[in-house]
Nucleic acid binder design. Structure first.
Lengths: 232, 232
DNA sequence: CCTTAAATTGAACGATCGTTCAATATTGAG
DNA sequence: CTCAATATTGAACGATCGTTCAATTTAAGG
Protein backbone atom coordinates (compact mmCIF):
# COMPACT_ATOMS: atom_id res chain seq x y z
CA UNK A 1 0.00 0.00 0.00
CA UNK A 2 0.91 3.70 -0.33
CA UNK A 3 2.42 2.80 -3.66
CA UNK A 4 2.62 6.29 -5.13
CA UNK A 5 4.62 8.23 -2.54
CA UNK A 6 8.13 6.85 -2.70
CA UNK A 7 10.15 7.81 0.33
CA UNK A 8 9.14 6.29 3.60
CA UNK A 9 9.59 9.13 6.09
CA UNK A 10 8.86 12.06 3.74
CA UNK A 11 5.49 13.82 4.30
CA UNK A 12 3.35 12.82 1.32
CA UNK A 13 3.31 15.36 -1.50
CA UNK A 14 -0.38 15.34 -2.47
CA UNK A 15 -0.02 16.18 -6.17
CA UNK A 16 -1.45 19.52 -7.30
CA UNK A 17 -3.41 20.28 -10.45
CA UNK A 18 -4.04 23.44 -12.48
CA UNK A 19 -7.52 25.02 -12.56
CA UNK A 20 -9.65 24.02 -15.51
CA UNK A 21 -11.03 26.50 -18.01
CA UNK A 22 -14.57 25.66 -16.97
CA UNK A 23 -13.84 26.24 -13.32
CA UNK A 24 -12.37 29.62 -14.06
CA UNK A 25 -15.37 30.53 -16.16
CA UNK A 26 -17.76 29.59 -13.36
CA UNK A 27 -15.81 31.62 -10.85
CA UNK A 28 -15.90 34.61 -13.19
CA UNK A 29 -19.58 34.39 -14.01
CA UNK A 30 -20.31 34.27 -10.29
CA UNK A 31 -18.32 37.48 -9.79
CA UNK A 32 -20.14 39.15 -12.67
CA UNK A 33 -23.58 38.13 -11.46
CA UNK A 34 -22.76 39.14 -7.90
CA UNK A 35 -21.52 42.52 -9.10
CA UNK A 36 -24.80 43.14 -10.87
CA UNK A 37 -27.11 41.93 -8.11
CA UNK A 38 -25.20 43.51 -5.22
CA UNK A 39 -25.32 46.83 -7.07
CA UNK A 40 -29.03 46.47 -7.80
CA UNK A 41 -30.30 45.27 -4.44
CA UNK A 42 -27.55 45.87 -1.92
CA UNK A 43 -25.64 43.29 0.11
CA UNK A 44 -28.57 42.04 2.17
CA UNK A 45 -31.03 42.40 -0.67
CA UNK A 46 -29.16 40.09 -3.03
CA UNK A 47 -29.38 36.42 -2.06
CA UNK A 48 -26.77 33.82 -2.95
CA UNK A 49 -29.54 31.83 -4.60
CA UNK A 50 -30.35 34.67 -6.98
CA UNK A 51 -26.66 35.20 -7.66
CA UNK A 52 -26.20 31.52 -8.43
CA UNK A 53 -29.21 31.50 -10.75
CA UNK A 54 -27.98 34.63 -12.55
CA UNK A 55 -24.54 33.04 -12.90
CA UNK A 56 -26.03 29.78 -14.17
CA UNK A 57 -24.55 27.59 -11.47
CA UNK A 58 -25.47 26.01 -8.15
CA UNK A 59 -25.40 27.77 -4.82
CA UNK A 60 -22.81 25.34 -3.51
CA UNK A 61 -20.41 26.51 -6.21
CA UNK A 62 -20.39 29.94 -4.65
CA UNK A 63 -19.16 28.61 -1.33
CA UNK A 64 -16.67 26.43 -3.16
CA UNK A 65 -15.16 29.22 -5.26
CA UNK A 66 -15.59 32.19 -2.96
CA UNK A 67 -15.86 30.79 0.57
CA UNK A 68 -18.81 32.84 1.82
CA UNK A 69 -21.17 35.62 0.81
CA UNK A 70 -19.07 38.17 2.62
CA UNK A 71 -15.76 37.27 0.97
CA UNK A 72 -17.60 37.08 -2.35
CA UNK A 73 -18.64 40.69 -1.82
CA UNK A 74 -15.11 41.72 -0.97
CA UNK A 75 -13.70 39.97 -4.02
CA UNK A 76 -16.26 41.66 -6.26
CA UNK A 77 -15.17 45.05 -4.98
CA UNK A 78 -11.47 44.27 -5.05
CA UNK A 79 -11.49 42.85 -8.55
CA UNK A 80 -11.73 46.16 -10.40
CA UNK A 81 -10.31 48.35 -7.65
CA UNK A 82 -6.67 47.83 -8.58
CA UNK A 83 -7.39 48.54 -12.24
CA UNK A 84 -9.14 51.75 -11.28
CA UNK A 85 -6.32 52.81 -8.97
CA UNK A 86 -3.82 52.07 -11.71
CA UNK A 87 -5.65 54.27 -14.20
CA UNK A 88 -5.68 57.11 -11.71
CA UNK A 89 -2.03 56.78 -10.77
CA UNK A 90 -1.07 56.53 -14.44
CA UNK A 91 -2.88 59.77 -15.16
CA UNK A 92 -1.05 61.33 -12.23
CA UNK A 93 2.29 60.08 -13.50
CA UNK A 94 1.55 61.55 -16.90
CA UNK A 95 1.00 64.90 -15.24
CA UNK A 96 4.27 64.74 -13.37
CA UNK A 97 6.32 64.06 -16.50
CA UNK A 98 5.35 67.50 -17.75
CA UNK A 99 7.79 70.24 -16.87
CA UNK A 100 5.07 72.47 -15.44
CA UNK A 101 3.59 72.05 -11.99
CA UNK A 102 0.22 70.21 -12.26
CA UNK A 103 -2.82 72.39 -11.62
CA UNK A 104 -5.60 71.51 -9.18
CA UNK A 105 -7.91 70.96 -12.11
CA UNK A 106 -5.47 68.55 -13.68
CA UNK A 107 -5.13 66.61 -10.43
CA UNK A 108 -8.88 66.34 -9.96
CA UNK A 109 -9.33 65.37 -13.57
CA UNK A 110 -6.77 62.61 -13.19
CA UNK A 111 -8.68 61.23 -10.23
CA UNK A 112 -12.25 61.72 -11.37
CA UNK A 113 -12.26 60.94 -15.08
CA UNK A 114 -11.12 57.29 -15.09
CA UNK A 115 -14.08 56.39 -12.88
CA UNK A 116 -16.58 58.24 -15.02
CA UNK A 117 -15.25 56.95 -18.30
CA UNK A 118 -15.35 53.38 -17.09
CA UNK A 119 -18.59 53.76 -15.18
CA UNK A 120 -21.18 55.88 -16.84
CA UNK A 121 -20.04 55.58 -20.42
CA UNK A 122 -19.52 52.10 -21.69
CA UNK A 123 -19.66 48.73 -19.98
CA UNK A 124 -22.86 48.07 -17.98
CA UNK A 125 -20.76 45.78 -15.80
CA UNK A 126 -18.61 48.76 -14.85
CA UNK A 127 -21.70 50.82 -14.18
CA UNK A 128 -22.84 48.19 -11.72
CA UNK A 129 -19.41 48.30 -10.12
CA UNK A 130 -19.64 52.07 -9.85
CA UNK A 131 -22.87 51.77 -7.88
CA UNK A 132 -21.17 49.22 -5.68
CA UNK A 133 -18.33 51.60 -4.94
CA UNK A 134 -20.86 54.23 -3.91
CA UNK A 135 -22.45 51.68 -1.59
CA UNK A 136 -19.15 50.73 0.00
CA UNK A 137 -18.06 54.33 0.38
CA UNK A 138 -21.24 55.36 2.18
CA UNK A 139 -21.63 52.42 4.55
CA UNK A 140 -19.45 52.22 7.64
CA UNK A 141 -20.02 48.47 7.56
CA UNK A 142 -17.52 48.18 4.71
CA UNK A 143 -14.95 50.67 5.94
CA UNK A 144 -12.29 47.96 5.96
CA UNK A 145 -12.75 47.53 2.22
CA UNK A 146 -12.54 51.27 1.61
CA UNK A 147 -9.39 51.44 3.67
CA UNK A 148 -7.77 48.71 1.66
CA UNK A 149 -9.01 49.50 -1.85
CA UNK A 150 -9.61 53.21 -2.15
CA UNK A 151 -8.03 55.19 0.66
CA UNK A 152 -4.40 54.63 -0.39
CA UNK A 153 -4.88 56.18 -3.83
CA UNK A 154 -7.03 58.95 -2.37
CA UNK A 155 -4.22 59.64 0.07
CA UNK A 156 -1.75 60.08 -2.80
CA UNK A 157 -3.94 62.67 -4.48
CA UNK A 158 -4.62 64.47 -1.22
CA UNK A 159 -0.88 64.67 -0.65
CA UNK A 160 -0.45 66.14 -4.13
CA UNK A 161 -3.11 68.73 -3.44
CA UNK A 162 -1.44 69.52 -0.13
CA UNK A 163 1.76 70.30 -2.03
CA UNK A 164 -0.19 72.76 -4.14
CA UNK A 165 -1.75 74.43 -1.09
CA UNK A 166 0.99 74.37 1.54
CA UNK A 167 -0.95 76.68 3.85
CA UNK A 168 -4.19 74.66 3.92
CA UNK A 169 -4.52 72.13 6.68
CA UNK A 170 -4.92 68.45 5.96
CA UNK A 171 -8.45 68.00 7.25
CA UNK A 172 -9.77 70.87 5.14
CA UNK A 173 -8.29 69.22 2.07
CA UNK A 174 -9.69 65.85 3.08
CA UNK A 175 -13.20 67.20 3.56
CA UNK A 176 -13.10 68.96 0.21
CA UNK A 177 -11.86 65.76 -1.35
CA UNK A 178 -14.77 63.83 0.18
CA UNK A 179 -17.18 66.37 -1.23
CA UNK A 180 -15.64 65.79 -4.64
CA UNK A 181 -15.77 62.02 -4.35
CA UNK A 182 -19.41 61.98 -3.26
CA UNK A 183 -20.31 64.30 -6.11
CA UNK A 184 -18.58 61.88 -8.44
CA UNK A 185 -20.40 58.90 -6.95
CA UNK A 186 -23.73 60.68 -7.21
CA UNK A 187 -23.45 60.45 -10.98
CA UNK A 188 -23.76 56.68 -10.86
CA UNK A 189 -26.32 56.45 -8.07
CA UNK A 190 -28.57 59.39 -8.84
CA UNK A 191 -29.09 59.42 -12.58
CA UNK A 192 -32.78 58.97 -11.84
CA UNK A 193 -32.81 62.01 -9.55
CA UNK A 194 -30.98 64.07 -12.14
CA UNK A 195 -33.65 63.17 -14.64
CA UNK A 196 -36.41 64.00 -12.17
CA UNK A 197 -35.00 67.37 -11.13
CA UNK A 198 -34.02 68.55 -14.60
CA UNK A 199 -37.34 67.68 -16.23
CA UNK A 200 -39.03 70.34 -18.30
CA UNK A 201 -35.62 70.52 -19.91
CA UNK A 202 -35.79 67.72 -22.43
CA UNK A 203 -32.12 67.38 -23.27
CA UNK A 204 -30.17 64.77 -21.31
CA UNK A 205 -26.65 65.92 -20.59
CA UNK A 206 -24.11 63.77 -22.40
CA UNK A 207 -21.45 61.85 -20.56
CA UNK A 208 -18.43 63.95 -21.46
CA UNK A 209 -20.35 67.09 -20.63
CA UNK A 210 -21.12 65.65 -17.20
CA UNK A 211 -17.46 64.87 -16.62
CA UNK A 212 -16.45 68.42 -17.53
CA UNK A 213 -19.20 69.73 -15.31
CA UNK A 214 -18.04 67.64 -12.37
CA UNK A 215 -14.40 68.59 -12.68
CA UNK A 216 -15.22 72.28 -12.99
CA UNK A 217 -17.55 72.10 -9.99
CA UNK A 218 -15.05 70.35 -7.75
CA UNK A 219 -12.09 72.44 -8.83
CA UNK A 220 -13.86 75.71 -8.07
CA UNK A 221 -15.33 74.41 -4.84
CA UNK A 222 -12.02 73.12 -3.55
CA UNK A 223 -10.17 76.22 -4.61
CA UNK A 224 -12.63 78.39 -2.72
CA UNK A 225 -12.48 76.18 0.37
CA UNK A 226 -8.68 75.97 0.44
CA UNK A 227 -7.94 79.51 -0.58
CA UNK A 228 -10.17 81.01 2.05
CA UNK A 229 -9.15 78.56 4.75
CA UNK A 230 -7.11 79.80 7.72
CA UNK A 231 -3.56 78.54 7.76
CA UNK A 232 -3.91 76.25 10.73
CA UNK B 1 -81.04 42.79 19.85
CA UNK B 2 -78.93 45.57 18.35
CA UNK B 3 -79.92 47.70 21.30
CA UNK B 4 -77.39 50.48 20.87
CA UNK B 5 -77.88 51.63 17.32
CA UNK B 6 -81.30 53.26 17.18
CA UNK B 7 -82.59 53.60 13.65
CA UNK B 8 -83.57 50.43 11.88
CA UNK B 9 -82.31 50.96 8.34
CA UNK B 10 -79.27 53.16 9.16
CA UNK B 11 -75.86 51.49 8.76
CA UNK B 12 -74.62 50.92 12.32
CA UNK B 13 -72.31 53.60 13.65
CA UNK B 14 -69.71 51.51 15.50
CA UNK B 15 -68.71 54.03 18.18
CA UNK B 16 -65.20 55.47 17.89
CA UNK B 17 -62.64 56.03 20.63
CA UNK B 18 -59.61 58.26 20.98
CA UNK B 19 -56.11 56.74 20.99
CA UNK B 20 -54.70 56.09 24.43
CA UNK B 21 -51.50 57.70 25.66
CA UNK B 22 -49.84 54.31 25.94
CA UNK B 23 -50.74 53.40 22.38
CA UNK B 24 -49.28 56.63 21.08
CA UNK B 25 -46.12 56.08 23.08
CA UNK B 26 -45.71 52.60 21.62
CA UNK B 27 -46.19 53.87 18.10
CA UNK B 28 -43.60 56.58 18.69
CA UNK B 29 -41.02 54.33 20.26
CA UNK B 30 -41.35 51.99 17.29
CA UNK B 31 -40.67 54.89 14.92
CA UNK B 32 -37.64 55.95 16.96
CA UNK B 33 -36.18 52.47 17.12
CA UNK B 34 -36.82 51.90 13.43
CA UNK B 35 -35.14 55.18 12.59
CA UNK B 36 -32.05 54.13 14.48
CA UNK B 37 -31.83 50.58 13.18
CA UNK B 38 -32.70 51.37 9.56
CA UNK B 39 -29.97 54.01 9.58
CA UNK B 40 -27.45 51.63 11.14
CA UNK B 41 -28.10 48.49 9.11
CA UNK B 42 -30.16 49.50 6.10
CA UNK B 43 -33.67 48.39 5.21
CA UNK B 44 -32.91 44.71 4.67
CA UNK B 45 -30.35 44.60 7.43
CA UNK B 46 -32.72 45.72 10.16
CA UNK B 47 -35.27 43.07 11.13
CA UNK B 48 -38.67 43.84 12.60
CA UNK B 49 -37.74 41.65 15.53
CA UNK B 50 -34.74 43.79 16.39
CA UNK B 51 -36.82 46.93 15.93
CA UNK B 52 -39.50 45.57 18.27
CA UNK B 53 -36.90 44.62 20.85
CA UNK B 54 -35.26 48.05 20.65
CA UNK B 55 -38.67 49.67 21.00
CA UNK B 56 -39.55 47.47 23.95
CA UNK B 57 -42.66 45.96 22.38
CA UNK B 58 -43.79 42.89 20.50
CA UNK B 59 -43.33 42.31 16.81
CA UNK B 60 -47.10 42.10 16.31
CA UNK B 61 -47.43 45.67 17.56
CA UNK B 62 -45.42 46.84 14.58
CA UNK B 63 -47.89 45.36 12.13
CA UNK B 64 -50.74 46.72 14.23
CA UNK B 65 -49.46 50.30 14.35
CA UNK B 66 -47.60 50.55 11.07
CA UNK B 67 -49.13 47.91 8.79
CA UNK B 68 -45.93 46.42 7.35
CA UNK B 69 -42.17 46.86 7.37
CA UNK B 70 -42.29 48.84 4.15
CA UNK B 71 -44.87 51.37 5.31
CA UNK B 72 -43.01 51.62 8.62
CA UNK B 73 -39.94 52.65 6.67
CA UNK B 74 -41.90 55.22 4.69
CA UNK B 75 -43.42 56.67 7.84
CA UNK B 76 -40.01 56.94 9.48
CA UNK B 77 -38.73 58.95 6.53
CA UNK B 78 -41.85 61.07 6.19
CA UNK B 79 -42.05 61.94 9.86
CA UNK B 80 -39.24 64.50 9.90
CA UNK B 81 -39.31 65.36 6.21
CA UNK B 82 -42.01 67.99 6.49
CA UNK B 83 -40.25 69.65 9.44
CA UNK B 84 -37.03 69.78 7.44
CA UNK B 85 -38.78 71.18 4.38
CA UNK B 86 -40.45 73.80 6.53
CA UNK B 87 -37.16 74.94 8.01
CA UNK B 88 -35.71 75.30 4.52
CA UNK B 89 -38.68 77.16 3.13
CA UNK B 90 -38.77 79.43 6.18
CA UNK B 91 -35.13 80.34 5.62
CA UNK B 92 -35.95 81.04 1.99
CA UNK B 93 -38.88 83.25 2.97
CA UNK B 94 -36.64 85.17 5.34
CA UNK B 95 -34.32 85.84 2.43
CA UNK B 96 -37.12 87.10 0.21
CA UNK B 97 -38.35 89.62 2.77
CA UNK B 98 -35.07 91.47 2.41
CA UNK B 99 -35.10 94.21 -0.20
CA UNK B 100 -31.97 92.92 -1.93
CA UNK B 101 -31.95 90.01 -4.33
CA UNK B 102 -30.77 86.85 -2.50
CA UNK B 103 -27.30 85.66 -3.45
CA UNK B 104 -26.47 82.12 -4.52
CA UNK B 105 -24.61 81.63 -1.28
CA UNK B 106 -27.64 82.72 0.71
CA UNK B 107 -29.88 80.32 -1.20
CA UNK B 108 -27.55 77.39 -0.70
CA UNK B 109 -27.13 78.28 2.93
CA UNK B 110 -30.89 78.32 3.41
CA UNK B 111 -31.12 74.83 1.93
CA UNK B 112 -28.04 73.21 3.42
CA UNK B 113 -27.77 74.54 6.96
CA UNK B 114 -31.06 73.30 8.47
CA UNK B 115 -30.09 69.74 7.63
CA UNK B 116 -26.61 70.06 9.10
CA UNK B 117 -27.73 71.82 12.25
CA UNK B 118 -30.36 69.19 12.93
CA UNK B 119 -28.24 66.30 11.78
CA UNK B 120 -24.63 66.47 12.73
CA UNK B 121 -24.83 68.79 15.67
CA UNK B 122 -27.33 67.83 18.31
CA UNK B 123 -29.89 65.07 18.51
CA UNK B 124 -28.53 61.58 17.78
CA UNK B 125 -32.01 60.68 16.58
CA UNK B 126 -31.70 63.36 13.91
CA UNK B 127 -28.28 62.06 12.98
CA UNK B 128 -29.80 58.65 12.37
CA UNK B 129 -32.47 60.31 10.26
CA UNK B 130 -29.80 62.10 8.27
CA UNK B 131 -28.15 58.82 7.42
CA UNK B 132 -31.53 57.50 6.41
CA UNK B 133 -32.06 60.40 4.04
CA UNK B 134 -28.72 59.64 2.43
CA UNK B 135 -29.83 56.03 2.01
CA UNK B 136 -33.11 57.00 0.40
CA UNK B 137 -31.49 59.55 -1.88
CA UNK B 138 -28.94 57.10 -3.22
CA UNK B 139 -31.16 54.07 -3.76
CA UNK B 140 -33.48 53.97 -6.76
CA UNK B 141 -35.62 51.55 -4.79
CA UNK B 142 -37.00 54.45 -2.74
CA UNK B 143 -37.34 56.99 -5.51
CA UNK B 144 -41.07 57.29 -4.79
CA UNK B 145 -40.23 58.54 -1.29
CA UNK B 146 -37.70 61.03 -2.61
CA UNK B 147 -40.23 62.30 -5.11
CA UNK B 148 -42.80 62.85 -2.43
CA UNK B 149 -40.66 64.11 0.46
CA UNK B 150 -37.64 65.90 -0.94
CA UNK B 151 -37.98 66.74 -4.62
CA UNK B 152 -40.68 69.42 -4.21
CA UNK B 153 -38.56 71.58 -1.92
CA UNK B 154 -35.48 70.95 -4.03
CA UNK B 155 -37.49 72.09 -7.03
CA UNK B 156 -38.31 75.38 -5.31
CA UNK B 157 -34.66 76.12 -4.66
CA UNK B 158 -33.64 75.09 -8.16
CA UNK B 159 -36.23 77.49 -9.52
CA UNK B 160 -34.80 80.26 -7.36
CA UNK B 161 -31.31 79.55 -8.62
CA UNK B 162 -32.64 79.55 -12.16
CA UNK B 163 -33.95 83.08 -11.59
CA UNK B 164 -30.44 84.11 -10.56
CA UNK B 165 -28.86 82.50 -13.63
CA UNK B 166 -31.37 83.09 -16.42
CA UNK B 167 -28.92 81.94 -19.09
CA UNK B 168 -28.04 78.59 -17.50
CA UNK B 169 -30.12 75.63 -18.58
CA UNK B 170 -32.21 73.68 -16.13
CA UNK B 171 -30.31 70.38 -16.27
CA UNK B 172 -26.99 72.09 -15.56
CA UNK B 173 -28.51 73.66 -12.47
CA UNK B 174 -30.06 70.34 -11.43
CA UNK B 175 -26.78 68.48 -11.75
CA UNK B 176 -24.94 71.11 -9.74
CA UNK B 177 -27.66 70.93 -7.14
CA UNK B 178 -27.27 67.15 -6.92
CA UNK B 179 -23.54 67.58 -6.43
CA UNK B 180 -24.30 69.95 -3.56
CA UNK B 181 -26.85 67.62 -1.99
CA UNK B 182 -24.57 64.61 -2.12
CA UNK B 183 -21.75 66.63 -0.62
CA UNK B 184 -24.13 67.57 2.17
CA UNK B 185 -25.20 63.98 2.69
CA UNK B 186 -21.59 62.82 2.77
CA UNK B 187 -21.16 64.68 6.04
CA UNK B 188 -23.55 62.32 7.79
CA UNK B 189 -22.50 59.11 6.05
CA UNK B 190 -18.75 59.57 5.79
CA UNK B 191 -17.57 61.02 9.07
CA UNK B 192 -15.48 57.88 9.45
CA UNK B 193 -13.87 58.47 6.03
CA UNK B 194 -13.19 62.08 6.88
CA UNK B 195 -11.40 60.95 10.01
CA UNK B 196 -9.43 58.35 8.08
CA UNK B 197 -8.33 60.67 5.28
CA UNK B 198 -7.48 63.63 7.47
CA UNK B 199 -5.41 61.69 9.97
CA UNK B 200 -1.96 62.98 10.81
CA UNK B 201 -3.88 66.19 11.39
CA UNK B 202 -5.20 65.66 14.87
CA UNK B 203 -7.78 68.40 15.00
CA UNK B 204 -11.33 67.36 14.22
CA UNK B 205 -13.16 70.06 12.29
CA UNK B 206 -16.01 71.50 14.35
CA UNK B 207 -19.57 71.37 13.12
CA UNK B 208 -20.07 75.02 12.25
CA UNK B 209 -16.76 75.05 10.43
CA UNK B 210 -17.93 72.10 8.37
CA UNK B 211 -21.15 73.89 7.49
CA UNK B 212 -19.25 76.98 6.36
CA UNK B 213 -16.88 74.77 4.41
CA UNK B 214 -19.75 72.99 2.67
CA UNK B 215 -21.58 76.17 1.71
CA UNK B 216 -18.42 77.79 0.37
CA UNK B 217 -17.54 74.66 -1.61
CA UNK B 218 -20.97 74.34 -3.21
CA UNK B 219 -21.37 78.03 -3.92
CA UNK B 220 -18.06 78.27 -5.73
CA UNK B 221 -18.62 74.99 -7.57
CA UNK B 222 -22.06 75.93 -8.75
CA UNK B 223 -21.00 79.42 -9.70
CA UNK B 224 -18.21 78.04 -11.84
CA UNK B 225 -20.48 75.46 -13.46
CA UNK B 226 -23.28 77.88 -14.21
CA UNK B 227 -21.16 80.83 -15.18
CA UNK B 228 -19.15 78.85 -17.68
CA UNK B 229 -22.14 76.97 -19.04
CA UNK B 230 -23.30 77.62 -22.59
CA UNK B 231 -26.53 79.54 -22.80
CA UNK B 232 -28.70 76.72 -24.08
C1' DC C 1 -4.84 5.17 -21.51
C1' DC C 2 -5.80 5.29 -16.19
C1' DT C 3 -5.78 7.57 -11.83
C1' DT C 4 -7.50 10.92 -8.90
C1' DA C 5 -7.60 15.77 -7.65
C1' DA C 6 -10.79 19.24 -8.68
C1' DA C 7 -15.30 20.72 -9.66
C1' DT C 8 -20.31 20.32 -9.93
C1' DT C 9 -24.59 18.74 -8.35
C1' DG C 10 -29.04 18.36 -5.68
C1' DA C 11 -30.69 17.95 -1.27
C1' DA C 12 -30.84 19.13 3.21
C1' DC C 13 -29.47 21.72 7.49
C1' DG C 14 -30.82 25.10 11.25
C1' DA C 15 -31.69 29.93 11.65
C1' DT C 16 -34.11 33.91 10.75
C1' DC C 17 -37.18 36.50 7.96
C1' DG C 18 -42.08 39.28 7.70
C1' DT C 19 -46.59 38.35 8.75
C1' DT C 20 -50.82 36.48 11.03
C1' DC C 21 -53.83 34.87 14.63
C1' DA C 22 -56.59 33.88 18.79
C1' DA C 23 -56.39 34.99 23.49
C1' DT C 24 -55.76 38.41 26.91
C1' DA C 25 -55.22 43.00 28.94
C1' DT C 26 -56.09 47.82 28.82
C1' DT C 27 -58.74 51.94 28.62
C1' DG C 28 -61.95 55.63 26.71
C1' DA C 29 -66.87 56.50 26.56
C1' DG C 30 -71.54 56.27 28.25
C1' DC D 1 -69.09 50.99 37.27
C1' DT D 2 -69.94 48.69 32.81
C1' DC D 3 -68.79 47.37 28.46
C1' DA D 4 -67.03 47.24 24.11
C1' DA D 5 -63.41 49.22 21.21
C1' DT D 6 -58.63 49.31 21.24
C1' DA D 7 -54.21 47.58 22.24
C1' DT D 8 -50.84 44.09 23.68
C1' DT D 9 -49.28 39.54 23.98
C1' DG D 10 -47.01 35.00 22.84
C1' DA D 11 -47.03 31.57 19.61
C1' DA D 12 -47.09 29.95 15.25
C1' DC D 13 -47.20 30.26 10.11
C1' DG D 14 -44.74 29.43 5.57
C1' DA D 15 -40.94 31.34 3.09
C1' DT D 16 -36.34 32.31 2.42
C1' DC D 17 -31.85 33.00 4.20
C1' DG D 18 -26.45 31.34 4.13
C1' DT D 19 -24.12 27.25 4.64
C1' DT D 20 -22.88 22.26 4.47
C1' DC D 21 -22.69 17.61 2.83
C1' DA D 22 -22.17 13.14 0.30
C1' DA D 23 -22.54 11.60 -4.25
C1' DT D 24 -21.38 12.32 -8.92
C1' DT D 25 -19.11 14.23 -12.98
C1' DT D 26 -15.23 16.50 -15.16
C1' DA D 27 -10.63 16.93 -16.70
C1' DA D 28 -5.46 17.52 -15.64
C1' DG D 29 -1.10 14.69 -14.96
C1' DG D 30 1.66 10.81 -15.59
Amino acid sequence: MNLRSSSASAPEKPRRRAVSKRSLATSLSILDAAERLFAERGYDGASVRDIAKAAGTQIASISFHHVSKETLFERVVERRASELSQLRLDALSALKTLDTEPTLEALLSAFLRPYLEKAVAGDPQWLAYARLVAMVSADARWHRISERCFDPTAGVFIAEIARLFPHADRSTIAVSFIFSVSSMLSLSTSTWRIEALSKAAGNQPAMDRLADHLVRFCEAGMHAALGAAPNR
